[in-house]
Design a protein around this nucleic acid. Structure first.
Length: 286
DNA sequence: CTCCTGTCCTGCCGGC
DNA sequence: TGCCGGCAGGACAGGA
């Protein structure tokens, strides 16, 4: 469930606790998440200051002094808890990794389904790591636009919905925001990916940017709330327009306008593509 | 190359 | 009430 906006929010929440601070020690409560945690991870990371935090797609990249870095992926149930200095730590089930910061703050990684991952990278050249080497453009950057999206979809026979989940096409989009962006762009999830070009590609690229930006804004405001509450990050839930709304009326004004308000609105449908649920409006998404 | 399916993992929810 | 099956989903492997 954590997609680009959630990961961005978690990273922003981590920054004040980690950036410029030293990792004093690391506790590993188990040797693996989805994959084994690299041997020596705790030793390698301990005793170093955190220089910067970055996000690439759904990954958080923590760059440390001395040219080492490590990467955190939240998988689907990963969440991060931040304990301020002096705050009592109450262990919870699935607390797998704890970073103890010098000064007493602590960052806890909790992941019930253990789809997350942690690995170290060469801090000077982390983009070359296999997790990033083939990754598509950052959707919120200037390097992502209609023509770029069209180029990346060119010739692809898969459904656009499936193609958007491919991190080589565009980074950071997952199942929820793929549904939301396609709805905003009024494009059917069943449309062949390669047919998205020209104006349609422009519309879709803009919808992706809008949907993700709005979610980050929502995350930013909920971040404040959660930090006041229990320090938990990555928990926030905001309202989706179509995702998980099977059977509800399509809220899109332009959808209603097509036939006039007097007539019944169209209803959100669910279908399974590549083993994943898609939610869409069969009337306004074409 | 691209596409497609299965796998990992556990909590939760619906059905009986 | 309790059990069981199915579902959720990001990345990746492996086969077509």
């Amino acid at each position: 469930m954590p997609e680009l906006p959630e990961v961005e929010t978690v990273m922003r929440g981590l920054a004040p606790v980690m950036q410029g601070q030293m990792i004093e020690s690391v506790t590993l409560n188990r040797p693996d998440l989805r994959r084994p945690i690299p041997s020596g991870f705790a030793r390698d990371v301990s005793g170093r200051h955190v220089e910067t935090l970055q996000r690439r797609g759904k990954y958080i990249v923590v760059l440390l002094e001395g040219g080492l870095g490590f990467v955190l992926h939240l998988g689907m149930s990963g969440r991060v808890k931040i304990l301020a200095s002096g705050q009592q730590y109450t262990p919870e089930k699935h607390d797998h990794i704890l970073w103890h910061m010098k000064g007493g703050a602590c960052v806890v990684y909790n992941d019930a389904r253990r789809f997350g991952m942690v690995f170290t990278v060469d801090g000077a050249n982390w983009g070359a790591h296999e997790a990033f080497a083939m990754m598509g453009p950052e959707p919120l950057g200037n390097e992502f636009n209609g023509p770029v999206l069209a180029q990346r979809l060119k010739g692809r026979k898969a459904d656009i919905k499936a193609a958007l989940l491919d991190q080589r096409v565009v980074a950071g989009v997952g199942n929820i925001y793929a549904c939301e962006a396609l709805h905003m762009a009024e494009i059917s999830p069943l449309r062949t990916a390669g047919s998205i070009r020209g104006v349609r590609a422009e519309t879709l690229s803009r919808a992706i940017k809008t949907v993700l930006s709005r979610a980050i804004e929502a995350g930013g405001s909920s971040l404040k709330d959660y930090r006041q509450a229990d320090g938990s990050l990555g928990y926030f839930q905001h309202q989706f327009t179509v995702y998980d709304r099977e059977g509800e009326s399509c809220p899109s004004a332009s959808c209603r306008r097509r036939i006039g308000d007097a007539i019944r609105p169209a209803h959100i449908k669910r279908l399974v593509q590549g083993g994943r649920s898609s939610f869409y409006c069969p009337r306004c998404q074409r």
